[in-house]
Simulated scan of single mutants.
Amino acid sequence: MKFYAGATDNSWFNYLSRISPEDVNFWQPGGNSAFKYLQPGEPFLFKLKRPYHVIGGLGFFSSHTFLPLNMAWDVFGEKNGCASFNEFKRSILSYRTDKENSNPTIGCIVLTNPIFFETQDWIPVDQFMSRTGIVQGKGFDTAVTGSELWTQINNTLQKYLPSNPVFTENQFISKESDWPGYGKSVLQKVRIGQSAFRVLVTDAYSRRCSISGEKTLPVLDAAHIKPYNEQGPHNISNGILLRSDMHKLFDTGYITITKDYKVEISKAIKEEFENRREYYQYHGKELLYLPGKEVDKPNQQYIEWHNSIFRG
Rank of each mutant, 00 (worst) to 15 (best):
K2E: 08
K2A: 02
A5F: 10
N10V: 12
N10K: 13
N14L: 13
G30I: 08
N32T: 14
K36N: 13
Y37T: 06
G41F: 02
F46Y: 15
G56R: 03
F60M: 03
S62Y: 08
F66P: 00
L67G: 01
P68G: 07
L69T: 03
N80I: 09
G81M: 14
F88T: 12
L93G: 11
L93K: 13
L93D: 10
S94M: 10
R96M: 07
D98Y: 08
D121Y: 03
F128G: 06
R131E: 10
V135E: 12
Q136Y: 14
K138M: 07
S147R: 12
W150Y: 03
I153P: 03
T156E: 04
L157N: 14
P165Y: 11
V166L: 14
T168P: 02
T168K: 12
E169H: 13
S177A: 15
W179K: 00
G183F: 08
K184I: 12
K184D: 13
K184V: 06
Q194P: 12
A196E: 04
R198C: 12
A204T: 10
Y205E: 06
R207A: 12
C209R: 02
S210Y: 00
S210Q: 05
T216D: 02
L217C: 00
V219P: 05
A222R: 08
A222Q: 05
G232F: 11
L242I: 02
S244G: 00
D245T: 12
D245W: 01
L249G: 02
F250S: 03
G253C: 06
Y254A: 05
D260K: 05
Y261I: 07
V263C: 05
E264C: 15
S266D: 12
I269D: 10
E271C: 05
F273C: 14
F273G: 04
R276E: 14
Y282A: 11
L287C: 08
G292M: 04
V295G: 00
D296W: 11
Q300N: 06
Q300V: 13
Q301R: 15
Y302R: 04
W305G: 12
W305C: 11
H306Y: 11
S308R: 15
S308N: 15
R311C: 13
